[in-house]
Amino acid sequence: MYNKTFLSRKIWFSLFVTLLLINCCKPAKNNKEDTTSFIKNMDFPDSIQQRQLKNNYYQFPSAKEMFNYIKQEETLAFNPNLTNPVSHYPRYVDTKSKILNLGIYLADISYLTLYKEINKASEYLEVVHKLYKDLRIEVPFTDQFISRIKDNLNNEDSLVYISEQYSDEFYRYMYSNNKEHILATVSAGSYIEGLYIALNLVDEYKENSSVIQKIAEQKYTFENLYQNLNEFNDDSNIHLTLQYMEKILSVYNQLETKRKPVKTSKNEDNILVIDGGDEFFMSRSQFYELKSLINQLRKEIITKSF
């Protein structure tokens, strides 16, 4: 009898101590950021912390944001022959070509969804899923996303929304799992494909074309992409991509620049309005030089293993 009571007391005491320990480590609901105070006493040799604790970040819009921006003003007709065929997937046997072509296929999905070519986009999602597996990129809820896509094949809007959510999950996963070096190369692949599609949607050079103007403005993105890639230049997989970026920038650096002083004002809604800045002018020869270079680089990426 005595033993039984003693045992029961010990059990209750253990449970009490456990709950106390769990609660002392758990932040209050209204004070969720307090979890960071753990970092103070932990000496993690953790590259995630190092990457997140830096003074300079080079950001750039996604390939989809770029497509949306370029497509805004002129009616650019959809061309089904500009994407990298899904049948090319078995060609990519090494890591470098898998990463670059993952970027290419992701840009193709953005292009296809922008033009509501949903059935084709879902084929590309399957290839992207295979490349994720090959590269051990374990995007959460992938199986659920794939089954939701299959269930919504006749619902364009839902499919666009699901593919955007899936893409967001991918970026979140890469940032959270210290895979920014891979993400940098994926982004470079996406931008090469994005620029390839944009350049080839333009039939011929016109001096005052707003599309060509917007293609010229992508100089800034390639500069930030280059700086971003350069942060990981100790990774051998990055070297080739850096060379691609250098070639592209060498053409962009030839563009003529018109400087207008930057001025700020407030509009009637009291919102800051920023006017002025550098305007680029892309000549006929520069346009075709860039188009030829991008076509060549893109062909190299999609046709061979490195």
């Binding site: 403005e217 500069e223 919102i271 006017d275 550098d278 305007e279």
Partner: peptide
């Protein structure tokens, strides 16, 4: 937070 409008593409 703040809002702004921008006329020409820039870094």
């Amino acid at each position: 937070y703040f809002y702004f409008k921008n006329a020409i593409t820039k870094k």
